[in-house]
Each structure stands twice: as structure tokens, then as C-alpha cells.
Design a protein around this nucleic acid. Structure first.
Length: 743
DNA sequence: AGCTCCGGTG
């Protein structure tokens, strides 16, 4: 910030000059109360305010409640001032009037620490002779909105009614905003409808509540209603309407809104321009966004981040990086936009690379959002060392765990194989929302603790947390991994009538898995026939997978499932791979080669198996037959040693696990001994200490032979092996696997 | 006095 050489306000200087009056503001000369008060308005630094403050103390003006109030207002609301100073001043005032109380409450409500607003409000109730008035309530309700403190806000609503203030449009508008930000759209709408003299802010608050609460349709409907009632929309209205278009990804309507803004000569300020930018970006029109962005006279950090995030989320990483590098200043939201885009598009390594770059730069400090993304990326990779490092970082920096962070931590520990730690985070969490509960249920499910997952689900219901669609996916998943057929069925049929959650494609896929995996193929087929929604590819893949396990020659069913699957998704590798496995199992080699020809003609290749293992914070990746690792020689001699040991205990490789769908150049795939998970395990054996568990992550389902070998290794080498495949964890110990061979 | 724009979890 530039320093001014001459202060714009002439203030007393405590100099030993020849000036006969060292205190030119002293009332003994020519300063009355009005001069001092006008000086307050001209202050542009805390230092100047303090000088005026001193002068007021000297003259006794500070003890005039009105004048002291002026000082508070200036110090609390001025952009340069700190609230701490305002608070100090406030605490010195003997009898603050209601206006002064309100000013402080107002300032705290929009500060980073809105709880203070509520605390001052309580003091007001105790110490002030006046009851809070119609100015007080909008501020405290705003604080409650910021904190999403539902019960507190409801209590304010009650007080408003008792105080006969419930027809005040300012208060009612704040309540609409409050209920909206707590996610209770019904209550928000109830207040809105009952607002007697709605002004444009009433409409804006409700439109915004709908747009942000996931009901963009209703927001747009309300905008039309507003026109019908002849209420003229303003720039804030249009921001809300655009936000609704963005949520709906409705580019046509968005374009219409932009032309509406032009036709109706609505004031286009920076915020509105940014909302237009965001709409164009998220709705996929880079061209319109770029044109607007280049045209904008003034751009702020929102404008830049909106462009950056738009490109990044749609996978235009080069453009995104270009914008990022061009940003005049980067706040943490800009970094997060880049990190989260990588993380959400299945590029966890790229996400973590940017995270490291952030740590090295001095631009910004990681915040909760950054850490959530970094934890999520660690979870995807199974990078436990990094995940643990972030956990320590959170503790060291005294960052309070919100539900987002708690969820990500639980998910990270569970996906990295440390279920104990995941549960520890869960039990010590202060607040548990549906995300926290669901993540923990998912953790138990993926580790094969189906019963415990169901018990936790019951505890969740006891805690009055409402399960949603994802909760049920996880609960059903727990049933399918553990073979809890009856429980799964019971819960599935309770979903809609008892919990009001409509079963979706994922739930049907889980149910087909529960039935199919346990051998009830015909029931699975019946369920699919009865589906009220069109069966999706995932449902047919699941049925096909069940056919491989229990088909017993029912090739017709497998072929039907496969053709349904290919109808929906002609390039689905899984369809060909599974069906050819089934043909191979029954010795139908001619059909195997037929499928091979189709795949070749279509240019389809099996997704290559890839296993990774983190050692000392570095993630090592192995493909089948990989010899690119720098310890490759040692790895292969370890594999030879393992093979010899296995042979000595009488192990015979099970060749039926072979894919039997390989091109000549993929012959190495045939060699069971070169599978990626074996390479990773061998590397784990030579690079980690004897007491450390070996944690491997595989991108596909673990191979059957590898599963048997891993069990033996866990016994022969007395090592724990945690193998996470695409679907679940296999925890090998003492020759057994946690999945009890049900997988 | 109240309403607005970028980045997040299962």
C-alpha cells in the first residue's frame, strides 16, 4: 500500500514546537463536538482514529454516548480498521446506546468470526436497558446464517415474533436468507410467502436461496413470478438467476438472461459480469466467456478464478494453466481450482504435483479446501505417507475439522488400508453429518466388515442423521461384500417407503451383485426385469460378473447380459473380457477367438492392469511384466525366490485365471508370474521393513492366482499384505484373506 | 439495516 506523505486530515501533533496551543483540537480554542465528529469520518487509518479517540477522552466527549457511538461505527465498519480496536473502544464506553450495540453486532456478523456477533448480542440482552430492535435482528440473523446455526436462527425468529417485529421486511428478508443458507428451503419459502410488502430484496433472497439450495428450476420460476408482479429486477436478481442457469447447465436460458440484462439496462457491475462468466464457462461456452473476459474493464480474483476453474473442470488443462500463470495475484481459491480439477478428473498425481508447487510458493497457504483435495488425491493413490502428513499438518496448524475434512480424512485412512485410524477419526469427530457417517460405512464395507457397517448404519439412524442415496449405496455394498443377502434385500425394499430415498441405478447394481454373487442368478434377472428405470450398463456388467462366478454353463444368460451391455455401451471392454472368460472356462475356444477378432476390429484393448505401492512417500507403479523400475533385477530375483518357495509347499498355479484374450505381443500377460500386483508385492518385500505391512493398490480386480499367491506369501514370509483392488480390500495375514475368498 | 461472483467431502 502506498503511504501518503501528507495526511488528508490535519491532526494534532504532540510536537514541542512554538505553537502556544499544542492541542489544536482542544475545545478551548475553536473545536466543538461537530468538528471532532466530522474528523472521525475523514480518518483513513487506525492511527488517526486513535488520535481522535485520545482527543475525545481529553475533552470528555467520549462520555457522550452519541459521540462515542460515532467512533465505534467508524472503527468497526471502516475498511482499514480492525474490529479488535473497535471492541476495545466499545468496552470503555460506560453506557453504550442501542445504536452502538447494533453497530458492533453488525460488524462482527460479517467478520471472519461471526460468533462474536452472537456473544455481543447476549451481552446486549444482559446489560442494555433496551430490548434489541428492528435493526439488531437483521445483523444477528446474518451472523446465524454465516454460521449456519439453525437452532440459533430459529430462536431469533421466535424472538422476532414475540417482539411483534414479524412484519418488518428487513427482518423477514434476513430470515429468508438464513433459512436458505441452512438448506431449509421450505421454511425460507414459508417466510417469503408470508412477507406482506415484498420488495426486490425479498425476491432476490428467495431466488438466491433456490439457486444455491439445488432448486434452480424453482429459482427461475420465481423470477417469472417476479415479472408477473411487476417487481423490477436489479443486478442482484440477475446474479441469482444466472446462478440458477449455471446449476442447470442451461446455456440457452443463460444467453437469454444476458440479453435480458442488456435489454432492461440492468447495471452490470463486476459481480454480475463474474456471474455471467461463470455461467458461460460451466455451461461450456468458452468462446462467450473469453469474449466477455477480454472485454471486461475491471477484473478481480473471482473473474480470473472463474476462467481457470472453467477450463480445468472441463479438462482443458493447458488453457487452465495458462490462465493460472497469467493471474496478477493468486489466492488460495485459484490454487484449489487447479488442484481440485485434477483430483476430480481422476488425475491424483497431477493434483499432488500442484499441491507441492503451492507449498513451495509463497503465494498462498493451504486451507481446508486444499487439504480436502489433497487428502482425496492421496486416498485415490493409496498414498498413506502423504495422507498422514496432511493429518499432522492439520493438527500442527490447529485447523478445526469440519465435516468435509473429517470425511476426507476417514476416506483417506480407509482407502490407504488403515481402518483403525479411520474409525479413530470417526469416533473423535465433534460433528458428524451424513457424509462422515457414509464415508465410515463405506470404509467398513470395503474392508469386508459388513456386519459392523450395518451396525454403524443403525447407530446413524439413532443419531437422527437422515441417510441419503450414497449412504444406501455403501450399505448395500457392505452386504454384497459380505454375502448378507437377506439384510441387503430388506434394506433395499425399505429405501423408498421408510427412508424416502428412491433406488437408483447404483442401488439396483448393488442388489444384482448381492443376489448374483451369492448364486441367486434367477432372482437377479427377475429384479432387473422389474426395474422401473432402464437398466444401465453397470447393472448388466454386474450380472455378467455373476455369470462368470456361478454361470455353470448358463452361457445363454451371459450372452444376453453381454448383448444388452453392448447395446448401451458398444465399446465396453468389460463385456468382452468377462464373456471371453466365461467361454474360456467352458472350453469354447472358437468363441474366444471370435471375440478377440471383434475387439481387434473395434480397436478395443483391455485396460492394462497397474499396481502401485508407496515406499517412503514415493508411489511406485508397476504394469504387467514391467522392467522399468530401477530395482527391476532385484524384484525379479525376489519373484524367482517366491516361486521356488511356493513350489516347495506344493503350490500349482491356477491357469484358469488366465485372461485367454491376448494378442501375440501380449504374451507376457500369460505369464502369471509377471502380474502387476506380484511385482508390487515383491518390491514391497525388498524395500520395507519386516514389521511393516505391504500396501498395494491395483486399478482392476485382483487376479485369482495372485490372490492365492498373496495368501501364501503372507504365511511364508510372515508379512501382512493389504491389497486394494477396484472393488474392495484384501487383507492377507497368516495365509488367509479378510474377504474369506468371497469376492 | 437486508439480498450477489471463484475453489471442497462419502
Amino acid at each position: 500500500m502506498a503511504t501518503q506523505s501528507t495526511p488528508p486530515v490535519s491532526l494534532p501533533r504532540h510536537s514541542k514546537s512554538n505553537n502556544p496551543n499544542p492541542y489544536p483540537l482542544s475545545p478551548t480554542v475553536n473545536n466543538d463536538r461537530y468538528t471532532i465528529l466530522s474528523l472521525i469520518n475523514q480518518c483513513n487509518s487506525t492511527k488517526q482514529l486513535k488520535q481522535v479517540h485520545a482527543q475525545m477522552l481529553r475533552t470528555g466527549l467520549f462520555f457522550d454516548p452519541f459521540s462515542a457511538g460515532k467512533l465505534i461505527t467508524a472503527s468497526a465498519l471502516a475498511s482499514f480498521s480492525s474490529l479488535d480496536y473497535a471492541r476495545q473502544v466499545f468496552d470503555q464506553i460506560p453506557q453504550p446506546n442501542l445504536f452502538t450495540w447494533n453497530t458492533l453486532i453488525r460488524a462482527y456478523a460479517s467478520s471472519p468470526d461471526p460468533i462474536q456477533s452472537l456473544l455481543v448480542f447476549l451481552q446486549l440482552l444482559h446489560h442494555c436497558e433496551h430490548f434489541p430492535d428492528k435493526f439488531t435482528f437483521p445483523f444477528v440473523i446474518k451472523a446465524a446464517s454465516e454460521l449456519k446455526a439453525f437452532r440459533v436462527g430459529r430462536a431469533f425468529h421466535g424472538m422476532v415474533i414475540k417482539a411483534s417485529l414479524s412484519s418488518d421486511v428487513y427482518i423477514l428478508n434476513s430470515l429468508v436468507h438464513f433459512y436458505g443458507s441452512c438448506g431449509d428451503l421450505d421454511l425460507a419459502y414459508a417466510v417469503f410467502v408470508k412477507t406482506p410488502q415484498k420488495d426486490v430484496v425479498s425476491w432476490n433472497s428467495m431466488i438466491t436461496a433456490f439457486a444455491q439450495g439445488g432448486c434452480p428450476e424453482e429459482a427461475l420460476e420465481l423470477f417469472r413470478g417476479m415479472e408477473k408482479e411487476n417487481v423490477k429486477p436489479n443486478d442482484v436478481t440477475m446474479v441469482g438467476v444466472l446462478s440458477a442457469c449455471t446449476k442447470k447447465l442451461d446455456l440457452d436460458f443463460g444467453r437469454w438472461v444476458c440479453s435480458y440484462i442488456e435489454r432492461n439496462e440492468i447495471n452490470v457491475n463486476l459481480t454480475l459480469s463474474n456471474a455471467m462468466l461463470d455461467m458461460y464457462m460451466k455451461c461450456g461456452s468458452f468462446k462467450d466467456a473469453k469474449r466477455l473476459f477480454d472485454k471486461m474493464q475491471e477484473k478481480d480474483i473471482f473473474s480470473w478464478t472463474t476462467m481457470l476453474d472453467g477450463y480445468a473442470k472441463l479438462g482443458e488443462y493447458d488453457e487452465a494453466r495458462h490462465v493460472f500463470d497469467a493471474m496478477p495475484s493468486k489466492d488460495i481459491a485459484a490454487w484449489n481450482a487447479l488442484i481440485s480439477a485434477f483430483e476430480q478428473n481422476g488425475k491424483p498425481k497431477e493434483a499432488l504435483a500442484v499441491f507441492r508447487e503451492l507449498q513451495l510458493s509463497k503465494d498462498a497457504k493451504p486451507d481446508e479446501v486444499t487439504l480436502v483435495c489433497a487428502l482425496s488425491a492421496s486416498a485415490q493413490l493409496g498414498a498413506m505417507d502423504l495422507g498422514r502428513w496432511i493429518d499432522v499438518y492439520i493438527k500442527k496448524h490447529g485447523i478445526k475439522l469440519n465435516c468435509h475434512l473429517t470425511t476426507s480424512l476417514i476416506d483417506m485412512y480407509a482407502k490407504c488400508g488403515d481402518l483403525e485410524k479411520a474409525l479413530e477419526v470417526f469416533y473423535s469427530a465433534e460433528r458428524k453429518d451424513v457424509f462422515v457417517w457414509s464415508a465410515t460405512i463405506a470404509g467398513l464395507a470395503m474392508h469386508g466388515h459388513g456386519r459392523a457397517a450395518l451396525d454403524l448404519f443403525s447407530k446413524m439412524l439413532e443419531a437422527k442423521v437422515k441417510p441419503n442415496a450414497v449412504t444406501f449405496t455403501n450399505v448395500l455394498c457392505a452386504c454384497s461384500h459380505t454375502g448378507l443377502v437377506n439384510e441387503g434385500q430388506r434394506l433395499f425394499y425399505q429405501m423408498e417407503p421408510v427412508y424416502g430415498v428412491l433406488p437408483g441405478e447404483k442401488h439396483y447394481a448393488c442388489m444384482v451383485d448381492i443376489l448374483g454373487r451369492s448364486g441367486h442368478l434367477q432372482e437377479a434377472v427377475k429384479l432387473i426385469e422389474k426395474m422401473p428405470i432402464l437398466p444401465t450398463a453397470s447393472v448388466w456388467v454386474t450380472l455378467l460378473g455373476a455369470c462368470r462366478l456361478h454361470g455353470n454353463g448358463n452361457i445363454e444368460l451371459a450372452e444376453q447380459a453381454c448383448s444388452h451391455l453392448l447395446e448401451l455401451d458398444p465399446r465396453n471392454h468389460g463385456a468382452y473380457v468377462l464373456l471371453s472368460n466365461i467361454y474360456a472356462k467352458t472350453g469354447k475356444w472358437d468363441r474366444v477367438s471370435g471375440l478377440r477378432k471383434i475387439m481387434r476390429d473395434f480397436g478395443l484393448k483391455k485396460e492394462p492392469g497397474c499396481s502401485s505401492i508407496e515406499v517412503n512417500g514415493i508411489v511406485h507403479e508397476f504394469l504387467v511384466g514391467d522392467n522399468s523400475h530401477k530395482l527391476s533385477k532385484e524384484i525379479y530375483s525376489k519373484l524367482d525366490e517366491i516361486a521356488a518357495k511356493l513350489k516347495s509347499v506344493g503350490y500349482v498355479p491356477n491357469k484358469s485365471h488366465l485372461l485367454q484374450l491376448v494378442e501375440e505381443e501380449d504374451m507376457k500377460e500369460q505369464a502369471l508370474n509377471l502380474h502387476s500386483e506380484k511385482l508390487a508385492i515383491a518390491y514391497g518385500l525388498i524395500s520395507t521393513g519386516p514389521s511393516q505391512p505391504i500396501r498395494v493398490v491395483k486399478n482392476l480386480r485382483v487376479c485369482g492366482d495372485c490372490h492365492s499367491v498373496a495368501k501364501l506369501i503372507s504365511r511364508l514370509y510372515d508379512r501382512e499384505i493389504l491389497l486394494r483392488d477396484r472393488y474392495r480390500f484384501h487383507h492377507f495375514r497368516g495365509g488367509n484373506c479378510s474377504c474369506m475368498d468371497y469376492w
